[in-house]
Design a protein around this nucleic acid. Structure first.
Lengths: 128, 128
DNA sequence: TCTCGTGTACTTATATACTGATACAATCAT
DNA sequence: ATGATTGTATCAGTATATAAGTACACGAGA
């Protein structure tokens, strides 16, 4: 599968995002096998170590399990997945609100702006 | 004035944020003088070049004017300030929505979550 | 047992971001 | 004029992040 490599962002971070998105979306279901580092490395024309680095955080957050010699599995604990997703979301929201606050936008401003954008996108058929 | 230096973020970016916040907040009013690079550099115990780098983007966006030998001024054009602030806000909103989208959150989810957080913070007396 | 595929550790190369030291240029005010 | 103050340009050093090359360790399965 092709992947939009943004040269301004480290490859390993983009891979991490890709894997995480696939887990959250269910493309890699709980308990399923994840392709080996070498497989992914070849698919993306990248060094295995770079792929491995992408897995580091995912392991720390228990999203995936490493079986030393038989590859990696997505955790079977759905709660772990849900919580990780929620934690990421909370982080995004928090830093977003912080940024907006620094620019002097009130909570109401932010809410209103978001509503407007969502309306606008909905009209043009977007997902917001 | 003390400044919270976060060692994980380049100093010049933090200075840029500081200046911008002061402009947006009116602490540096339109048309007013901005302290010289050397003044700021001494105040923060930093090299003048580092301060100058902080001004680069602000100049590009016309927020400040450079008078080659008599220092820098905040633009008198309030519209420029307003628009810059709006542009920053739009950027934050856009990337925020993009991130949330990657995690599979619908527009409604985002709005609901924000509302909840705002309510919560308001109850505890925060600014959201 | 032996081979193959798995993750991992170690090392190195490279780029580039960050910061600073120093010297230069321009102009305002005295 | 002339000196002080402004921004700027150039160069260098340093640290860090990124990515890859290579070799090792372990265990499942034929």
């Amino acid at each position: 599968m092709p992947w939009d490599f943004n040269s301004s962002i480290p490859i390993y971070l983009q891979i991490e995002s890709m894997i995480k998105a696939r887990i959250f979306s269910g493309e890699y279901p709980p308990g399923s096998h994840i392709p080996s580092v070498r497989e992914i490395a070849q698919e993306l024309a990248v060094n295995p170590n770079t792929v491995q680095k992408a897995f580091k955080d995912l392991e720390d957050s228990k999203l995936i399990l490493t079986m030393r010699t038989s590859g990696r599995l997505v955790t079977e604990d759905i709660r772990t997945i849900t919580q990780a997703r929620q934690k990421d979301a909370d982080g995004s929201v928090k830093s977003f609100l912080s940024e907006m606050g620094k620019m002097g936008f009130s909570p109401e401003d932010v809410l209103a702006a978001l509503k407007a954008i969502c309306e606008e996108r909905r009209e043009s058929g977007g997902v917001c």
